[in-house]
């Protein structure tokens, strides 16, 4: 019997990648998500939606951790965080 133990961290850990999904036409620009994002990862986008509000977008280079607080605090059901599309997990 081999006493050689298998290393617990054999596989390289893969960090799950998250991003925010925005439904721009529902946004009313209250900016709760931008203010209360724990990672301060959101900003107003430069484009207006059809009602004239600026929906949020992920700041380039900022990390979304998928806490989904933006979805909870959004009064208009316009934003949520989820796994990045193409993230196979």
């Amino acid at each position: 019997m081999s006493t050689w133990r298998k290393p617990l961290t054999k596989a390289e850990p893969v960090a799950r990648r998250w991003c925010v999904h925005v439904l721009p036409e529902r946004c009313k620009g209250c900016s709760f998500c931008i203010e209360f994002c724990p990672r301060k990862a959101l900003e107003s986008s430069s484009q207006l939606n059809s009602k004239g509000y600026r929906p949020p977008r992920l700041i380039e280079g900022a990390t979304c951790v998928g806490c989904n607080f933006c979805a909870m605090i959004c009064p208009d059901f316009a934003i949520y965080s989820g796994p990045e599309v193409g993230d196979g997990k």
Binding site: V20, H21, V22, V85
Partner: peptide, 19 residues
């Protein structure tokens, strides 16, 4: 940023009345 037209809560709200 991924643009999607559905929200996870959409099955419990009348989306035709949203916004």
């Amino acid at each position: 940023m991924e643009m999607k037209e559905t929200h996870p809560i959409d099955d419990l709200i009348r989306t035709d009345r949203i916004p």
